[in-house]
């Protein structure tokens, strides 16, 4: 049964990856649901929040093929089972260019050289989006920092990003968050991790040191996965065990045609 869910999760994640972000936000009773618009941020580099089209919503709904699943073993996508106010949202993403000191192999980042911030959309899928020049500016600052503060004679190179994602959960009866992190990563994390959530309104922060992905490009758009997973809770009224997926990442060269 778990395999079925894993496959389903994969399908949904693939779907999520196909669009930069989609705004579902907190799962609330229909009467309380509010429309989620595009980002009101004026900075073009901020993540674009994409509203699901009817067609996209249908795809997501049709992927819910687990209705007959055993409730004590399996998770279901919660999108069509709104109960009490419950949900998961990416509340913050910070990206720090990641540097290696070549002579020692030490990996580090500088908290003062970063991009990102608090997200106000309460979306379950978010990406930081940077233009080529914005990215280069951050790299230049970090490399200048290394020249000024590094060990004389040592060499420094930027090999990826440290991405810090703050995930907000909300449910009357929360259970756990399961997540995986992007690859390649320098944190030695390959397997799925579980964090038990013991109270309503809990925050989880996941920080991961990521190398540039295989689809890296100097000039063309590419995406870096940071954290993907699901928040599982027991529905307040139906007693069903539901799961809501979430995702965070960074996109580069977003100004490329």
């Amino acid at each position: 049964m778990k395999r079925v869910f894993s496959l389903l999760t994969l399908v949904v994640m693939c779907f999520m990856l196909a669009i930069p972000a989609f705004a579902v936000g907190w799962q609330v009773p229909e009467a309380l649901a509010t429309a989620v618009g595009t980002s009101d941020g004026t900075n073009e580099a901020w993540a674009e929040r994409v509203i699901l089209s009817d067609e996209q919503r249908e795809i997501l709904q049709s992927s819910k093929i687990v209705k007959d699943i055993d409730s004590d073993d399996a998770d279901e996508l919660a999108t069509s089972y709104p109960t009490g106010i419950a949900g998961v949202a990416i509340e913050e993403i910070y990206g720090y260019p990641l540097m290696v000191e070549v002579e020692t192999g030490a990996l580090f980042y500088v908290p003062g050289i970063q991009t990102g911030g608090v997200l106000s959309n309460q979306s379950q899928s978010e990406s930081l989006r940077l233009t080529t020049q914005q990215t280069l500016n951050l790299y230049q600052r970090l490399l200048n920092y290394a020249v000024a503060n590094g060990t004389a004679g040592y060499h420094y190179a930027i090999v990826g990003w440290y991405v810090d994602t703050k995930i907000a959960t909300r449910a009357d009866y929360p259970m756990y968050v399961k997540y995986t992190v992007g690859t390649p990563n320098f944190s030695g994390i390959t397997e799925e991790r579980t964090v038990n959530i013991t109270s309503n309104g809990q925050w989880v922060r996941v920080g991961i040191a990521l190398g540039f992905p295989d689809n890296f490009s100097e000039t063309e758009y590419y995406h870096m996965n940071a954290v993907s997973g699901s928040f599982t809770y027991k529905a307040a009224f139906s007693n069903k065990i539901l799961s809501i997926p979430f995702f965070s990442g960074m996109s580069f060269n977003c100004d490329a045609a």
Binding site: A106, F108, Y109, V110, Y162, S187, G188, R193, V195
Partner: peptide, 23 residues
């Protein structure tokens, strides 16, 4: 919290949970 954060593979879990009722 210093001006340079060093990654120490194997020692630190990637996830932290907020252990306070006030966020």
């Amino acid at each position: 919290g210093m001006s340079r954060i060093t990654i120490m593979p194997g020692y630190f879990e990637p996830a932290y949970i907020w252990a306070s009722s006030s966020g």
